[in-house]
Amino acid sequence: MRKILLSVATAALVFTGCAKKTVEVQAPTQQQPTQQTTQVNEGSGMQTINQGMNEQELKMQKMKEIEAKSKKIYFDFDKYNIRPDQVPNVDWDAQLFNAQDAKEFKVKVEGNCDEWGTDEYNYALGLKRAKSVKDALVARGVDPQRLIIISYGKSNPVCTEHTKACWAKNRRVEFELLP
């Protein structure tokens, strides 16, 4: 369009006849070539729907992370009182369960025993160990309503070798988070 206008203006000047007049003819500016861009739209603009399953998985992941950070509380042979060397672990666990991101979860406090001792008494021993830890956590500000205790006796060993190190590992309280 601009070309046409320029041609028409030039022609008008030529035919109106000012012969001696120097006509400055502006050379047409060289046109820059237009860059052709193809917009690729496939795959964009899709919306995600955040379903419960995903949330649940995230929750599970969070629970597992907190569980992994928790410290086991170990006990002496045939005893259910918390040993002085285990108190820092209880402090750590109380802090962990009192943290903001853990407060939505319940905590199952599981009492366990080594392979010695007999059936019923061993289950009761595991229960008393779990209760000792629960009481210690409550004393450190954990809401008792969030704590569930159970005894697994000797049904849940972490170590099955017949060694003293192994038996000591099994006399423990550990935690499982529940939604």
């Binding site: 009761a124 229960l127 569930i148 005894s151």
Partner: peptide, 8 residues
């Protein structure tokens, strides 16, 4: 019963 339960 929570905790433990045994029929002895």
């Amino acid at each position: 019963s929570p905790g433990m339960l045994v029929c002895s």
